[in-house]
Simulated assay, not measured.
Amino acid sequence: MNKQKQLSEVTELWKTNKKQYVKKSSFSAYTLLIENHVLPTFGKAFHVEETDVQDFVFRKLESGLSHKTIKDILIVLKMILKFGAKNKWFEYTPFDIQFPTEREKHSLEVLTKSDQKKIMNHIQEHFTFRNLGVYICLSAGMRIGEVCALTWEDVDTDRGVISVSRTIQRIYVIENGIRKTELILDTPKTKNSIREIPISKDLLRLLKPFKKIVNPSFFVLTNDARPTEPRTYRSYYKNLMKELHMPDLKFHGLRHSFATRCIESNCDYKTVSVLLGHSNISTTLNLYVHPNMEQKKKAIEQMFKALR
């Protein structure tokens, strides 16, 4: 039998192995979870019991960490433990962790129809390339990294489609013991995220005049060879929303608003899922197929109309 190792040693060997198979951004996400959560708690351990992990979960919940983040940490921890057990460096007994029922319902942040119209009208009247990004997200449901990575080459005004094939993100890296961040332009996380989105008539009217004169290799948001990064663009968007006296909606709320408008227009769920680049339709159903107050009122009115 191989010599038993501490979890911190197993983790380093697992990272060296894992780095060969995953995208740089995924590896960065794993590293961050390991550094901030796994090693401080389990790094010195030679064996991890189910009770240790259950206590860890309760502590993290108390500290305000979300269920999703904690579940992500447990996925990484399990991968490391299984790797250690496979190489006979670490004892691993599969564990079954319980999460308390989430009492609060997390409602999606979505723009009202009137606020969405107000923003879109403002952008049409006060055109800038950075404003155009917000208009594109409301018209195509793109993620912030995808719109930051969009070049004029990806915008086909003849066919009337936007091709989404890249994303920009700032990732966390550790090189020779030095921690730093790095901006990377990469393919999206899943193959479903690589997609073509039809351009609406209003958006096409905005894009056509520029498409004839711009450099196709330039990024849409900057109309320059250098892109803007999501963090910078998020801050620009916040100021724009403040200027328009809009609710304090996260940038991702633009994507939620696009999806909600599609569902409200009775667009079939499979199509919405493909437009958003979700890896499966259940993600779309879980996120968006919840009737809002407007739809609930309509259902009640229709029921009583039928009774009359």
Rank of each mutant, 00 (worst) to 15 (best):
C267F: 05
L13M: 15
K212D: 15
D52H: 14
L185A: 12
V38W: 00
M120L: 12
I281R: 03
L203S: 10
S26W: 05
K3L: 06
T151M: 11
A140N: 11
L183E: 09
K212R: 14
L13T: 02
K296I: 15
I194L: 09
M79T: 05
E175N: 10
E294P: 08
T112G: 11
V173I: 13
E50V: 05
S114C: 00
L33F: 06
Y288A: 06
E50Q: 10
E49T: 10
H278K: 02
Y30L: 04
I184N: 04
R261K: 01
M1K: 01
V289A: 08
G43S: 11
K78R: 15
I199Y: 04
Y92G: 07
N121R: 10
A45E: 11
F90R: 12
K105D: 13
R195S: 04
G177L: 02
F99C: 06
I80D: 08
T112S: 15
V274L: 09
V76R: 01
V10C: 06
Q4K: 09
L61Q: 07
T284G: 12
S66M: 00
A29N: 05
L108K: 04
L287G: 05
L221D: 03
S193T: 04
D52M: 09
E9G: 04
Q302E: 14
L221G: 10
S265G: 02
E50W: 00
N17K: 08
K201F: 04
I300P: 14
C262V: 06
C262M: 15
I184P: 09
E109R: 00
S28Y: 01
K113A: 13
K212A: 15
L254I: 01
V155P: 05
A299M: 14
K15W: 13
T31H: 08
R143Y: 08
K298D: 12
V274C: 00
R130L: 09
L285M: 14
D202A: 13
N176L: 02
T190E: 10
P100C: 00
I194M: 11
I199N: 11
K201D: 14
D72K: 02
I281E: 06
F95Q: 10
G277I: 01
K211I: 07
R159C: 01
V272A: 02
N87A: 04
R261S: 10
V161P: 04
V289I: 11
R103F: 05
K208T: 13
L132C: 12
L275E: 08
T260M: 14
S273D: 09
G43F: 07
T181A: 05
T51Q: 11
S200Y: 01
G253W: 09
L185R: 15
P100H: 00
M142I: 11
E153V: 02
S235N: 13
S114R: 05
D154V: 01
K18E: 13
S114D: 13
